[in-house]
Simulated scan of single mutants.
Amino acid sequence: MAQLSVALVAVPRVIGLDFSIPAHILGGHPGYRVLVCGDERGTGPGIAPDHPLTSIGESDIVVVPGYEEPAAPLPEEYLAPLREAADHGARLVAICTGAFALAQAGILDGREATTHWRFVRSLRETYPQVRVLENRLFVEDGKILTSAGAGAGIDACLHLIRTDFGEAAAHEAGKEVVVAPARDGFQPQYVDVLAAPRASLSATRGWVMEHLGEPITVQHMADHAHLSRRTFIRRFERETGVSPMRWVANHRVLGARRLLETSDWAVERIAAATGFGTAANFRAVFRREVGTTPTEYRRLHAGARELTS
């Protein structure tokens, strides 16, 4: 499998942390070839462009990190290559205030996007043609992925790896930077009401992960957490951003993806191990959630295993 080219744009006023996250996570994966694109206006501590801005329009993936004073327009020399990349079908990723660059270039017109919660209002008011979603870790609209602050930038990078090379590869990349590789984009950036540590439902989520192959209901989870069903659902959604059964379904799909990538188990065995029951139900749910059949998914990611082995 050939490497995918990633143009990491060193925009003026770039935030070093937002730049270093994709540089480290994507640059550390053998499936990507990272090109730092920019000119003398996009330099900073540890940032030295090694490719011209014209390389942006020729890349498979373009990553725009966050930058200071996002309301101040970027030079047209940075915007034109972004439009060219979008026109030829590249995937575009914005971390934090990088969404302002895509919006200024007109790439987000009519699309859903997010950014750091401090800048949601500014993005919405400055670019009313963009459907700005608040309090999301990341939002994917077609080939455009926008994310919140630095931590959510990690999630966006892991999501890219998962899309290109599978769940096992994202899991390994997550281990490398010591983060959980399966945070859903719907998870909130923040929670207004702080809960005491003992109120966390992490123990119940861990219990679910150990029993994915068994029948699991909301009542089972509420009983494990020693909460009423209504209170459990409210707390669970506040902590994770999704409903309990949606969270269970997401992790069953992730578990199935990992087994398809790393084992030679039959579909029937994977269906049983991840709680889908019958192979027919597994195939139907997997196709709905992933967009392809388990057999085709396994075939597609065989090349990814060869590249990373």
Rank of each mutant, 00 (worst) to 15 (best):
G149D: 10
T146F: 03
L133T: 01
K143G: 07
K175C: 15
G151E: 07
E172N: 01
A180L: 13
R162Q: 08
R162C: 05
R136A: 10
T126H: 14
Q129S: 13
K143M: 04
A168R: 14
G153F: 04
L158G: 03
A195L: 11
P181R: 03
G166K: 00
F186W: 08
V193H: 08
I161S: 08
G185F: 03
A169Q: 13
T146I: 06
E176K: 08
A170T: 14
R162P: 01
T146A: 03
Y190F: 15
V132A: 11
P188L: 06
I144Y: 02
V177S: 07
D155R: 04
V179E: 03
L137E: 11
A156V: 11
K175Y: 09
I144H: 02
D192R: 09
A173H: 01
H171A: 15
I144E: 01
P181W: 06
D164T: 00
D164P: 02
F138C: 04
S147I: 11
K143E: 07
R162N: 06
G149Q: 06
P128N: 07
V193Q: 10
V193L: 09
V130M: 01
A195P: 03
Q187F: 05
I161D: 06
R136I: 12
V178G: 07
L194D: 14
G174C: 14
P181K: 04
G153A: 15
V191N: 14
Y190M: 12
Y127C: 05
G185Y: 02
F165L: 00
G174L: 08
R183N: 12
